[in-house]
Design a protein around this nucleic acid. Structure first.
Length: 207
DNA sequence: CCCTGATTCGC
DNA sequence: GCGAATCAGG
């Protein structure tokens, strides 16, 4: 395979979209991620941030300045879970549900005392299982699975790990399921069960 | 071990 | 220019 204009165009587009080299390589086919990375460098678009130009555009990151030399534990809860649109099924995004019954230890959510938490306002919460419209078995299964979750961070997610978010991204208690995902699906078996439902069963809610 | 991008260097 | 091998890291 060679780098035709079309392939290069795809490469540029996907790279600028933030796609990984391996994802791009898979999309193009006939090349490895190394080839993609090599090409990216040769094209000179290695750095995905295009610094405007001279001066100091400086990223105006909206963050509370921390006077303390301590680490900032909070990262952007930015979640990019890109699930390929399925044909006969559709993802179920529902309202958040806080439930973690007996959790005696520290509750990191509110602690006005020592540290200001960085809470992104208006950030939509990730899909969480709703008690509504989900089969009891699947729901019970999810509960069970959440206890076995590998609790992966964003960086640790791959195409083969379940990307089901657990907890509130605004708090420390947030991670991803991380169990082996179903082939071609973004979630593990249990989470696929609640995320994807046949049209028939989601039919006429409320009414 | 899974993955990421960066770099090197023979082709 | 190309990309496998390698490196450095999450």
């Amino acid at each position: 395979m060679s780098w035709t204009d079309e392939r290069v165009e795809t490469l540029k587009r996907m790279w600028s979209e933030g796609q990984s080299a391996s994802a791009i390589a898979k999309e193009l086919g006939g090349v490895t991620r190394n080839a993609v990375i090599g090409k990216v460098h040769r094209l000179g678009l290695s750095n995905r941030n295009d610094e405007p130009e001279a001066g100091k555009p400086a990223a105006p990151v909206a963050e509370a300045p921390a006077p303390e030399p301590a680490k900032k534990p909070a990262k952007k809860p930015e979640v990019k879970v890109d699930a390929k649109p399925e044909k006969l099924e559709e993802p179920e995004a529902a309202a958040p549900e806080e439930d973690d019954e007996a959790e005696p230890s520290t509750q990191p959510a509110f602690n006005p005392a020592n540290r200001r938490m960085i809470v992104p306002a208006g950030q939509p919460l990730p899909p969480q299982p709703s008690a509504n419209e989900i089969s009891p078995e699947a729901l019970a299964s999810v509960r069970e699975v959440e206890k076995k979750a590998r609790k992966l961070s964003l960086m640790e997610l791959t195409e083969r790990t379940c990307k089901w978010p657990i907890g509130d991204p605004a708090t420390e208690k947030f991670w991803f399921c991380g169990l082996p995902s179903q082939p071609g699906k973004p979630y593990c078996e249990a989470h696929v069960g609640v995320a994807f439902q046949p049209m028939s069963s989601r039919r006429d809610r409320r009414r």
